[in-house]
Amino acid sequence: MRIQVNGEPRQVCEEINVTDLLRDLQLNVERVAVEVNLEILDRRDFDAKTLQEGDRIEILSFIGGGT
């Protein structure tokens, strides 16, 4: 199925959850925030959150910044 990750279309398996997606992207679960269709997820819900066709996912983390 097709989803959108950080604005880019992406083909993923059916039944994929957020933890699976982060693993595919080689991202550290502890260092990111995930928003699915504008809803921010609690890290504890990454396993339970199964993605659907057309979902819009945003993955963010801390970068260098001042004011």
């Binding site: 990750v5 950080n6 604005g7 880019e8 992207l25 080689q26 991202l27 550290n28 260092r31 990111v32 925030a33 945003e58 993955i59 963010l60 983390s61 801390f62 970068i63 260098g64 910044g65 001042g66 004011t67």
Partner: peptide
């Protein structure tokens, strides 16, 4: 202080700021 931005998902080798600044040592 740090900013919050989209992660780079195309360059999987990109490093993370927190690999250099241990959150146990600094208040982020």
């Amino acid at each position: 202080t740090v900013a919050v931005r989209r992660v780079n998902i195309t360059d999987r080798n990109s490093e993370n700021l927190l690999d250099y600044l241990d959150p146990k040592q600094y208040t982020i």
